[in-house]
């Protein structure tokens, strides 16, 4: 069964998926309705930001998690009304299930009430984080 068909099919599917993957990583997706659970300091481990709180979920087998953490930690230094929490997804499965986090890194953007407004999967660009924060402020 020497055929090129399986190779062509797999490569075509992989290219289509790869283009979608590259475009969608880091993109801030707004929730359609803001009705999720209210998170607070007891749950995420830090005080909520006055305007926005970014909650990043990471796991061990995730390279972009490190880059995302470095970026977000750096960005909150200049934004006093924005706080940042970093959570190990595997050690907090109950929370992961409640919030339906499926991949890492996933960064939740919470409003001042601690309710999720939207999230970004993958490493966002600096501009994407700023746009998301400004949209919530």
């Amino acid at each position: 069964m020497n055929s090129l068909t399986p190779l062509v099919v797999v490569l075509a599917l992989a290219i289509a998926f790869g283009v979608w993957y590259t475009r969608s990583r880091g993109e801030f997706r707004r929730k359609k309705t803001v009705n999720g659970p209210k998170l607070d300091a007891a749950i995420i481990g830090i005080e909520l930001g006055a305007a926005v709180t970014m909650v990043q979920f990471s796991s061990a087998f995730c390279s972009p998690c490190r880059a995302t953490k470095a970026l977000l930690e750096d960005m909150v230094k200049t934004m006093p009304d924005v706080h940042y929490a970093h959570i190990d997804a595997e050690a907090n499965l109950e929370l992961v299930r409640k919030l339906d986090v499926r991949s890492t890194p996933t960064t939740l953007f919470l409003n001042s009430d601690g309710v999720e407004v939207g999230r970004a999967m993958g490493t966002p660009k600096r501009s994407q984080v700023l746009a998301a924060v400004n949209a919530i402020r």
């Binding site: 995420i44 990471s58 061990a60 995730c62 953490k69 929490a85 970093h86 190990d88 907090n92």
Partner: peptide
């Protein structure tokens, strides 16, 4: 529910 911020992982 207590959160573990000590990420054993990635960071």
């Amino acid at each position: 529910m207590t959160v573990q911020n000590e990420v054993s992982a990635s960071t």
